[in-house]
């Protein structure tokens, strides 16, 4: 049900464009103003959310330690990147986390069953599919975003052209097929099917988990449609996009409806981003279980709101138990 709601909502968004541009001819609204608003909301919203997190202090250093601690015993070898004590090693840990999804790479799958004698068995198998499709999804997305920058730059910087040509390396079809288009659709489909088909994952999923997947798939498919089927006029589109980035918005003729669909869905993604779980893009950098060294035993960490609560003092303790303590021959501070 939750998946269907989200799917219907994405269809509803399509209808909005078909009606808004196709019937009502609100080209300026869909081609200029909505994208502007979306970009502004995305940028300001993203910055605000990160600022809001950063506003709360980190009272304690609570890294989840994923290996051997730093020891003074020479034969005990520290696992520096999973249990760092220095800033440098913490940066490395974070780089592994952000760039290679290190924690997700640990993933295992547990199963419980009975052996031939009826005895219980808990088995753990390596489960790298989520990691594989997760990383494929994110890197494809990133590459596609970078590729699209050719529409917002003039002249197009060399590295963008380079990425573009690498991505179309296979030289299949005309226009040439982008590898990342295929990878993104495949990975998003995997992530979606996993949510729908695995009973545990379906049970914990919210409508807010299906919606971004459907939306991104719709964006990808509309993009593919534009390029390979509608074969839109890229020159006209670049005229429009350059108008947006140079703040001289202008709607050329010859921009087909499929472009407006694509642009509107991207605008919705940008609008939705700061209010949703997609903010994990910013949050992953702020997680105190990963971005801090495990060093509270080595050097002092300051908690800005430390309440300095006093313990029940020894003097009070001795007052409670002085007599039996003396009787038992335990030393006391005040003899009577």
């Amino acid at each position: 049900m939750k998946a269907l709601y989200s799917l219907f909502f994405v269809f509803a968004l399509l209808l909005v464009v078909l009606f808004g541009v196709g019937a009502a001819h609100l080209n300026m609204l869909f081609g200029v103003w909505i994208p502007y608003v979306a970009m502004a909301v995305f940028l300001l919203g993203f910055i605000y959310r990160v600022y809001d997190w950063a506003k709360s202090p980190v009272p304690f250093r609570i890294p989840t330690t994923g290996g051997q601690q730093w020891s003074v015993l020479p034969e005990v070898k520290q696992n520096r990147w999973d249990n760092p004590t220095t800033v440098r090693d913490t940066v490395i840990r974070m780089a592994f986390e952000v760039l290679l999804f290190r924690s997700l790479f640990r993933n295992t799958k547990s199963e419980v069953y009975k052996n031939e004698n009826g005895g219980p068995v808990v088995a753990y198998a390596s489960a790298k599919w989520l990691w594989l499709f997760g990383i494929l999804f994110h890197y494809s997305f990133l590459t596609i975003v970078i590729r699209h920058m050719r529409l917002f730059t003039e002249p197009v910087p060399g590295f963008i052209t380079l990425i573009d040509s690498l991505d179309s390396l296979l030289q299949i079809a005309a226009p040439t097929l982008y590898l990342t288009d295929v990878a993104l659709v495949a990975a998003a489909t995997f992530l979606l099917m996993r949510r729908i088909l695995a009973p545990q994952i379906r049970y914990l999923s919210l409508a807010a988990d299906y919606f971004p997947l459907f939306l991104i798939l719709a964006i990808a498919i509309s993009g593919i449609y534009m390029r390979y089927i509608a074969k839109v006029d890229v020159i006209a589109i670049k005229e429009l996009t350059m108008g947006l980035v140079t703040f001289h918005p202008h709607i050329p003729a010859n921009v087909g409806i499929s472009f407006y669909i694509h642009l509107f869905l991207v605008s919705i993604l940008l609008l939705y981003f700061p209010f949703s779980k997609l903010m994990h893009l910013g949050g992953v950098f702020l997680s105190p279980t990963r971005n801090l060294p495990n060093d509270s035993r080595v050097r002092h960490h300051e908690n800005p709101w430390n309440p300095k609560i006093k313990c029940h003092s020894y003097a009070d303790y001795e007052d409670d138990f002085r007599e039996p303590m003396i009787e038992a021959g335990l030393p006391v501070d005040k003899a009577e």
Binding site: P57, G134, S287
Partner: peptide, 15 residues
């Protein structure tokens, strides 16, 4: 607690 705020916000329910 930044931990509390961030952990309330960023879960993607990957499972």
């Amino acid at each position: 607690y930044r931990s509390f705020k961030v952990f309330m916000d960023i879960c993607v329910r990957c499972g």
